[in-house]
């Protein structure tokens, strides 16, 4: 269970660029919740994910994940509990390292690292099976440098890495936005599959309202650094894009409706 209480973050405090990116967000996710997040540019969607991941310290509030208070834990320490996939396909993998080496790094997330072999033979056989299940032809390329792969392949591997060691929480920040529509769909389907198979608790930011409605069991809308709409269960299943547009209009905030929101 994820419990966020009154989380606040202001960037560039005391300068003309001051920006209140989170203005007291509270959110509770139950185990197995798959929650999509929508909102205009600058609404604070990435900021809330970065706050949970610990990219920088927040100003106030608390983040408790499965009973652990992680609010002040450094980023690499909370990685033990959290799997992440980023918008930029370059960001989630080490380009100069092989596919198996990347996976092996992820398999050791949250563990102490020693002078033991970085990748074992048993692991490699396991990875081949996992890669085969992706159906991207990567099972024969275990020792290829990740830098040689396409964006979609890299995102698929990053997804695999994020779930290789079951995380308490999976954070997906527009992880299909940089991909062409066909690849985006494939990676999105894969995300669904991985979340279901491992019964993960997940937060997924997307600009595509249809995707936000079609995936997960809960949807939140953000505007001006806070949550302005929160639906789940049956209400979410019956949600239409027009309902969401209405909500955006109601909010009437500057960043609510803009060009980057994909309507269909």
């Amino acid at each position: 269970m994820l419990e966020i209480k009154n989380l606040k973050k202001t960037f560039n405090k005391g300068t003309i660029n001051e920006k209140a990116a989170l203005t007291g967000v509270s959110l509770t996710l139950n185990d197995g919740d798959f929650c999509t997040i929508i909102g205009g540019n600058g609404a604070g969607k990435s900021t809330i994910l970065n706050a949970i991941a610990g990219v920088w310290p927040v100003d106030s509030g608390s983040i408790v994940l499965n009973g652990h208070d992680i609010t002040w834990l450094p980023e690499h320490k909370r990685a033990k509990y959290i799997g992440r996939v980023f918008q930029d396909p370059m960001m989630g993998t080490a380009a100069t390292m092989q596919i198996d080496e990347n996976l092996a790094l992820a398999a050791r997330r949250g563990q102490s690292r020693f002078l033991k072999p970085g990748t074992t033979e048993a692991e490699r056989t396991h990875y081949v099976d996992l890669l085969r299940s992706l159906d991207l032809g990567l099972e024969d390329r275990l020792t290829s440098k990740v830098g040689l792969l396409s964006g979609g392949q890299r995102q698929a591997i990053t997804l695999l890495m994020a779930s290789l060691k079951k995380p308490d929480l999976l954070l997906l920040d527009e992880h299909t936005a940089a991909l062409d529509p066909k690849t985006a769909k494939k990676v999105l389907d894969l995300s669904d599959l991985i979340i279901q198979e491992n019964q993960l608790t997940a937060l997924m930011v997307t600009h595509n309202m249809k995707d936000a409605i079609a995936h997960g069991n809960r949807l939140i809308m953000m505007s001006d650094g806070n949550i302005i709409y929160d639906v789940s269960g049956e209400e979410k299943e019956n949600l239409q894009v027009t309902d969401l547009l209405h909500k955006f209009e109601e909010a009437g905030s500057s960043d609510a409706v803009n060009d980057r929101l994909v309507l269909n």
Partner: peptide, 26 residues
Amino acid sequence: FFGTEIGSAIRATGCNQNMARAQGIN
């Protein structure tokens, strides 16, 4: 050494610090 867990962590850090931290590497 650079084939061990610690060595791999150093290589990952040199390649992509974001990724390294996301994988729990100090």
